[in-house]
Nucleic acid binder design. Structure first.
Lengths: 103, 103
DNA sequence: TTATTATATTACAATTTCATAATATGATAC
DNA sequence: GTATCATATTATGAAATTGTAATATAATAA
């Protein structure tokens, strides 16, 4: 269980992969659109997509020559919100520490 | 923002670090107790603690010779629940696929 | 002061992750 | 058929992560 949790988290824990998840927030998209939005190499993007698919976060289907990907778990987006809350709080803590040091 | 999210997730995404977070679920603990519970090397445990502290997930204070750590954000435990839900769902999907293959 | 306990830090080799580049596959258009 | 577009896969070297072992620090006890 612990190992599996780590695997899923690792699959998300990369800037490009978080960007992909963010891009798919609005709904499913084909690879070519994803590539255009995030502006990275086709090969690299494809590898990141495959990592997210392997961990079960994304799924996809073929549509002619294209492949359409989507986020399987909307909860992922809530996780991102939680992360942003932590980020904000961390930032506040740091600035308070700085204030105290300056006094 | 994206980078920072990835940093936090990376800091959590390791079996030992998830175990540490789990151990601290019940409340703060000193390093010696954590080491005893998870049964890993002192040095290694200390390194993982420091990674979690650096990302802001954990904080600590000195108490005499000991150092007591705790989880700063209870939301982390909710995140783990979300992960377990995904794990379960992934497992179900896989078993359904297997069933279909066998028919 | 010296020994001991609790914890952190450093050095290092093994492994993993990453981006790039090149190539392969597979569907459609001509 | 061949060319082209969309995507995946493979190879590779550089960079980051990991665990172990050794060492350092800092607090308390003797």
């Amino acid at each position: 269980m612990i190992e599996e949790r780590a695997e899923i988290l690792k699959s998300i824990a990369h800037p490009t992969r978080i960007t992909i998840i963010e891009t798919l927030r609005a709904g499913e998209k084909c690879v070519c659109d994803i590539i255009e939005e995030i502006g990275l190499e086709q090969s690299n993007t494809s590898q990141h997509l495959s990592i997210l698919k392997k961990s079960g976060i994304l799924d996809c289907r073929k549509e002619g020559a294209r492949v359409v990907y989507w986020v399987c778990y909307p909860e992922i987006h809530d996780m991102m919100k939680v992360l942003d809350g932590i980020l904000l709080n961390n930032a506040e803590k740091k600035s308070k520490l700085l204030q105290r040091v300056r006094k």
